[in-house]
């Protein structure tokens, strides 16, 4: 049997799906990469305040060329703009917001996720280690963690696994996993993940074949 070519959702689709998890009034931290795209897909009637861990609450869009200010950057070190609601704090106070459970949701990328919600996204042994940045603090402190990642690695091996093979960023921290094949969610951190949605053209058998983790099936 030849393997079907897995496509499913694009990067933008992943970001758009994650954006639907953000509710009116939420304070949200978006990680670097695909998670940053989430802000492009927040519905106009949903008012979300974005937080950046270097010490900015209330992130605006990227600046026009003439608005660029080197003193206004996000956690990805990108130039950004402020809004009428914006406040600045020290990095210590910013992580107080995170560690203290005041941020509703964080959306992050991953290299691997385990069936018990472990997350690995900071280190590959044998490669140059750049450091964890704020990822460990985010997964330890933010109330709900949503992970966006490709379902499989470049060599086709599953990234949603029984146990992470890479060093962990956090132990039992993931609440929702959105991959190009579908959406997995769990009721709480004692529960198993449930496959809730499939990307267009993806069948449950496709997900089974490309997943090592044990999960339940409960399509909505």
């Amino acid at each position: 049997m030849t393997d079907r070519i897995m496509a499913g959702w694009t990067r933008e689709d992943l970001a758009a799906r994650a954006a639907r998890e953000l509710h009116d009034g939420y304070y949200v931290n978006l990680g670097i990469g695909i998670p940053t795209l989430v802000s492009n897909f927040i519905a106009p009637d949903v008012d979300v305040t974005l937080q950046s861990e270097n010490g900015m609450l209330g992130l605006g869009p990227y600046p026009l060329e003439r608005e660029v200010d080197p003193d206004i950057i996000n956690a990805g070190k990108e130039t950004i703009t402020e809004l009428s609601r914006t406040s600045y704090v020290s990095s210590a106070e910013s992580f107080g917001m995170i560690r203290g459970g005041h941020i509703n949701v964080s959306v992050l990328g991953a290299m691997e996720v385990s069936e018990t919600g472990d997350l690995a996204n900071w280190m590959v042994p044998g490669r140059m280690v750049k450091g964890p940045g704020g990822a460990m603090d985010l997964v330890a402190g933010v109330r709900r963690i949503i992970v966006l990642m490709d379902h499989t690695a470049k060599d086709g091996s599953p990234k949603f696994r029984k146990a992470c093979s890479l060093p962990l960023t956090g132990h039992n921290v993931v609440d929702m996993l959105i991959t190009n094949l579908g959406v997995f969610e769990r009721a709480d951190r004692q529960s198993a993940f449930v496959l809730r949605e499939l990307a267009p053209g993806i069948r449950v058998e496709d997900v089974r074949r490309h997943t090592e983790a044990v999960y339940e099936e409960g399509l909505r």
């Binding site: 990095s91 210590a92 992580f95 560690r99 964890p132 460990m136 402190g141 962990l168 132990h171």
Partner: peptide, 29 residues
């Protein structure tokens, strides 16, 4: 971890020799 670093510096400056955090539990850190 970035938040732990910020808090370690804050604590040091405030005369606090150590603190407990959830960040990094179950990891190499």
């Amino acid at each position: 971890p970035q938040g732990t670093l910020a808090e370690r510096i804050r604590a040091g400056g405030a005369g606090i020799p150590g603190f407990y955090t959830r960040t990094g539990v179950g990891t190499l850190i």
